[in-house]
Design a protein around this nucleic acid. Structure first.
Lengths: 341, 341
DNA sequence: TTGTAAGCGTTATCAT
DNA sequence: ATGATAACGCTTACAA
């Protein structure tokens, strides 16, 4: 361990609590002693120990952002926005990744204790949040992108998301309206109880049904690897899909990253987009715009969602009730789908 | 605060230290009491407070990975690899983002104290690491992707990187060898003293010189915004470049993300790649492969670099000397450049 | 095998 | 305005 508050007090010839007052700008301390203490602090590069501080402090201004899969490009913009907004309000944000083996609420509970958090934002993750865990967490919590299942009392947490089923239906309907009937669906991990995944698939099925298009399981490509929803998975699934269905004319992908992988697969088979295969993605990540061709996609208002989540959190921090906001998405038509003649 | 070790001890009818022994698997404790304690622990969902633990503990197994710009896609693979390797060795990894306003070494020093770290890996960042800071840090530190400047005694830190100047030269030479003479360079932030940026540019200049191609400042596009090296910046810079130089036939971009943005700009102007403009990127991010056309790029052996950094860190942890490894990159020719007739 | 007690570096409550 | 001193929740001798 380095230099402590005790050392500073000794070196400055003052009491420990005076040093504490100086570095926290609390209580009153004469200009003279303040200057003296600050001098020693700088000279010795003293840095207060947050572990010790967290142990004592009652009300902190620490907020955690837990991201399930921090490398997911869709989260990028949101993370940056949340970072800004939290800083703006004078709070400290601690961003952590939640890996595949951990449950986001467990991490939240742990970090709350460790870092004396006053609030948590959870981005991504799974459906299986229990009421018990929320209660154990004990601090305001906002879920972004997902919501807990119906068993959980909605008043003990907040959420900001889109209507995944509706948007999945919208994407599929778009392709149907263009005349497509053989429409593939590229799935991420169907067996997991992840809200967005199941719901978008449901939307796909519903659109087919409503339009009297028979469901064909061969048109659904499922990722059985442990890889996350990346380009590679999209690539492989599209190859499978095309091999199984030579008559396929369109694909709706669960996420833009899968859509991009799928698009590359189409090119690699010597076909073109949208002439041979139409593709619609989901999320509206930056890359979907810069890809060639730019991808049609269901755009999630990421910046607004991020802002909302922060606003709701601060509202709860001030004693406000929990809120559940469902945003509308926008179908961006940018040229990766074509009308079937 | 929730339930503490004291509560558990009381509820289990044992001493505090016994509980501590049980949850840490240290010392000896009878099977009977262990079972009893564990029962209470589970029943009450007791979670030890790491702040308190860190305050006491002398030797921890905590390692921090500080990433300068965690949303940089080039870091993705490395982060995942480091995560795996650290877990494999039974240590705890804490990943943190270092934002633009903070210096990575300051964060490292702070976190070392707060979380009782035993080692740090720093990914990305700037050139201006002072010897003083390294000394203050006081624990083994590996820089990945960059190295400190020459003023710093190389024995007080380790580094894993590539030879950015050499590779910048290689990329440029490749384009020259294909017959290009009007070669643009898309820069990130030239004024900052970031090792890779300056060095790749140096390599570009050197290649031109060695081949007797006059340097034309109009062919260098510089990002003056505060945005990071993303698609958008690449897009804008390419537009500028082409507007200023109608005779440009090739572009070397500082990073793949810039290259992709540049590629999209080329398409948006109704031109094609590589027929009208050849493009070479840098890094070898996953997307460079899935883009259409796949991008020629200088591929950095990310996985190997990540592995090396962990190995070096653990070697230092066991008292080994510091090491500085410079990896070779590979020029991937995938079709985004063509021979000029 | 188990419990007691002394810290770890802070902040907060008191006196002074 | 300032300085002792008691926590905060834990680990770790040391005693029993």
């Amino acid at each position: 361990m380095g230099i402590t508050i005790k050392d500073i007090a000794r070196l400055a010839g003052v009491g420990i609590s005076t040093v504490s007052r100086v570095i926290n700008n609390s209580g009153s301390v004469s200009d003279e002693t303040r200057k003296k203490v600050l001098g020693i602090v700088n000279q010795y590069n003293y840095i207060p120990n947050n572990s010790a501080r967290n142990l004592k402090i009652t009300q902190s201004k620490n907020i955690a952002l837990l991201v399930k899969g921090i490398t997911n490009p869709f989260f990028n913009k949101m993370i940056r926005k949340i970072e800004q907004e939290i800083a703006l309000r004078g709070y400290t944000l601690m961003i952590s990744n939640v890996n595949d083996n951990s449950h986001e609420l467990d991490i939240a509970i742990q970090e709350t204790q460790d870092n004396n958090l006053c609030g948590v934002i959870i981005m991504g993750g799974s459906y299986d949040c229990t009421e018990e865990k929320f209660l154990q967490l004990g601090i305001p919590c906002v879920l972004v992108t997902i919501s807990a299942n119906e068993m959980v009392d909605p008043s003990i947490y907040s959420s900001v998301r889109i209507d995944d089923e509706k948007e999945g239906r919208r994407a599929t309907n778009y392709l149907i309206s263009l005349g497509h009937r053989r429409i593939g669906f590229i799935h991420h991990t169907p067996n997991e109880n992840s809200t967005p995944n199941t719901l978008r698939y449901k939307g796909y099925l519903r659109a087919l049904k409503e339009n009297g298009i028979p469901f064909d399981p061969d048109l659904v490509a499922i990722n059985h690897t442990r890889d996350d929803a990346g380009y590679k998975v999209g690539f492989q699934l599209m190859k499978q899909l095309y091999t199984r269905n030579r008559d396929i004319t369109a694909v709706f992908a669960f996420a833009d990253s899968l859509a991009i992988g799928a698009a590359k697969a189409v090119f690699s088979m010597g076909l073109s987009i949208p002439d041979d295969i139409s593709i619609v993605g989901f999320d509206g990540i930056e890359m979907s715009k810069y890809y060639q061709p730019s991808l049609d996609t269901i755009y999630q208002p990421a910046t607004e969602m991020a802002l909302s989540s922060v606003e709701i959190l601060f509202d709860m921090l001030q004693g406000g009730k929990s809120q559940h906001i469902v945003y509308d998405s926008v179908l961006l038509k940018r040229g990766s789908s074509r009308r079937l003649l």
